[in-house]
Design a protein around this nucleic acid. Structure first.
Lengths: 147, 147
DNA sequence: ATCATTTATATCGCACACGACTGAAATCGA
DNA sequence: TCGATTTCAGTCGTGTGCGATATAAATGAT
């Protein structure tokens, strides 16, 4: 009767838990670098393309600006980024990597492979890869719905 | 060279985002009930079996007690649970559903199906079901590693 | 029986996440 | 051109998550 309300039947709980578990597995590596998982995501975005306004970073990570702003402020305090006033559009704040954060890329380079090894002990890469299209469709769809 | 550090190549980012998106999709329903997603998870656990100590709930949700305790305190303040001293082991706090929370089960019954419809617009149930074994293996594996 | 260890819960501090809202700058429309 | 609207970034309040730590009760060892 309440079959649907059983925890074991809920895909969402698994996604929620898996995300936390992976973040936990990343943590030892991030600790060495003095960053957090969301800060790592910001670095990924900026390593791909430096000097982006807050909004572009937020959109890329599918986060709200009121999440990203404080995140960037903490990263600035930690010496990872600078936030300079936009010249074309003065409302914007352009986020730039510091030399320290640029150098950090070399350290971080090995992390995904290490995580991959860790996770690969438990799940085959094939199974993991197979999840990606479904996740992308889910994200794409709900992202529209939620706004 | 830094191919591994591209956001698009990261499974973890997708899990993290998908979990947030689904939570967002749940929110309209939870708002009506005056609960949050983690509180809903606690209710799922207690609807299955009432009167559990804090530790059992935490273990079931794979959360730390220092996450669950404040969660339960908020739920107690909201009139959803009572936390009574354990009689056998006085260190324990047995968490009990209030009549209000028991009644809420009827309201909540429809939620998973509604979410299923929502998500089903974008991803087939088959694809979603197919992810479950991989997620379970991943969670099981990392859960051990992370402690 | 008594002391050391373990266990159950809790507190504290910090870092997200997000809804609601604000202020200032850019843009749009008549 | 000039007032209305939109956009960008930000603040504030609330609710998680979790590492570190505290406290009291239960358990184990001698």
């Amino acid at each position: 009767m309440y079959e649907q309300l059983k925890l074991d039947n809920q895909l969402c709980f698994r996604l929620y838990t898996a995300a936390r578990m992976i973040a936990g597995a990343y943590n030892p590596y991030f600790e060495q670098l003095g960053i957090t998982y969301p800060q790592y995501l910001v670095l990924l975005v900026l390593w791909e393309k430096d000097q982006q306004p807050v909004n572009d970073i937020a959109k890329r990570l599918l986060l709200e600006t009121n999440t990203v702003t404080p995140l960037l402020q903490r990263m600035e305090k930690a010496g990872l980024v600078r936030r300079v006033k936009g010249e074309v559009d003065t409302r914007q704040r352009i986020v730039c990597l510091t030399p320290q954060a640029i150098a950090m890329r070399e350290q971080a380079k090995e992390i995904p492979a290490k995580l991959g090894n860790e996770i690969g002990k438990y799940v085959s890469m094939q199974e993991l890869q197979a999840m990606i299209p479904a996740l992308d469709k889910l994200i794409e769809g709900l992202q529209q719905t939620n706004k």
